[in-house]
């Protein structure tokens, strides 16, 4: 239910004099950005480049990369689009952790040391920070990420209670950035594992009360490269920029497969 828009005395809630510094006072600082480069058109081996940059308090790693690309070295190549963490283009390894460059503020990193940026691991690097995403999307497609409902279509919407809707809410947030899958040590080994992202998207349908094909998805994930390869290292949960409890979702799928078998 909407809360009625009742008038409030601003003084009771907001001290405007104090909240005055919101986005205003922006400090400036220097960073060193160190990026692992790769361009098979130039040389076979990867190399590291370093730049010293002056950045601002609200700047993100993406801003630093843009500063290099736009002002210093146009050949630096990376994917990006929305720049506020909802399109999933710019997952990369920042100081050894999978992050979205547009959601990682420079001031939250240790700026006394170089900020190290690499392509995400486990997928073939194509150029600089760009990897081949096709294997990732192939796994996604294999778990049948779409609703299957064989009952007659009602004229109005299919009914679903708020509780049933809540059941799979967490996994609907996935933006397919691959931060989780490429943080998974099991995936790094040979790329055969379906990976957390595919399982998260299967979870989203398995636990949707409107969907009929949960059994088929469970069967797919019962594969030897399916959920049983998860070692619960929690790398995926830690990496997820959307705050999805990925490992928990994987465990729920395991439980569902077991329950179904018994």
């Amino acid at each position: 239910m909407s809360t009625p828009t009742v008038e409030k005395e601003p003084a009771s809630k907001i001290d405007l004099a104090e909240s005055g510094d919101g986005a205003g006072a922006v400090q400036q600082f220097d960073i060193t950005l160190k990026v692992r480069r790769y361009d098979p058109e130039r040389t076979e081996d990867a190399w590291w480049d370093e730049w010293n940059l002056t950045m601002f308090g609200t700047d993100r790693v993406l801003d630093a990369l843009h500063k290099v690309k736009w002002d210093v070295d146009g050949t630096l190549t990376f994917r990006r689009s929305c720049a506020h963490g909802i399109c999933g283009s710019d997952a990369m390894r920042i100081n050894g952790r999978n992050r979205l460059a547009c959601k990682t503020l420079l001031k939250d990193l240790d700026t006394s040391k170089p900020i190290i940026v690499e392509a995400i691991k486990g997928l073939p690097v194509e150029k600089d920070l760009i990897v081949d995403m096709e294997p990732f999307f192939q796994s996604y497609r294999e778990i049948m990420p779409f609703m299957i409902n064989s009952s007659p279509t009602p004229t109005a919407e299919r009914v679903q209670s708020p509780e049933e809707r809540q059941r799979f809410d967490d996994t609907t947030k996935c933006i397919l950035c691959a931060a989780c899958t490429s943080s998974c040590p099991v995936f790094w080994t040979d790329g055969q594992y379906f990976g957390p992202a595919a399982i998260v998207n299967a979870h989203r349908f398995i636990f949707d009360s409107r969907d009929d094909a949960g059994d088929m998805r469970l069967e797919i994930l019962n594969d030897r490269e399916g959920v049983w390869r998860c070692r619960t290292t929690f790398n995926c949960t830690e990496a997820c920029p959307r705050g999805i409890e990925v490992t928990k979702a994987i465990q729920e799928v395991k439980t569902a497969i077991l329950t179904r078998s018994l």
Binding site: E134, P135, G191, N222, D223, R224, W228, L258, S261
Partner: peptide, 18 residues
């Protein structure tokens, strides 16, 4: 076009892993 390394050779049958 997918790097063959990533193609799963065959779907496993049965529930050995489970």
């Amino acid at each position: 076009r997918i790097d063959p390394k990533y193609l799963r050779s065959s779907a496993s049958s049965g529930s050995f892993e489970m």
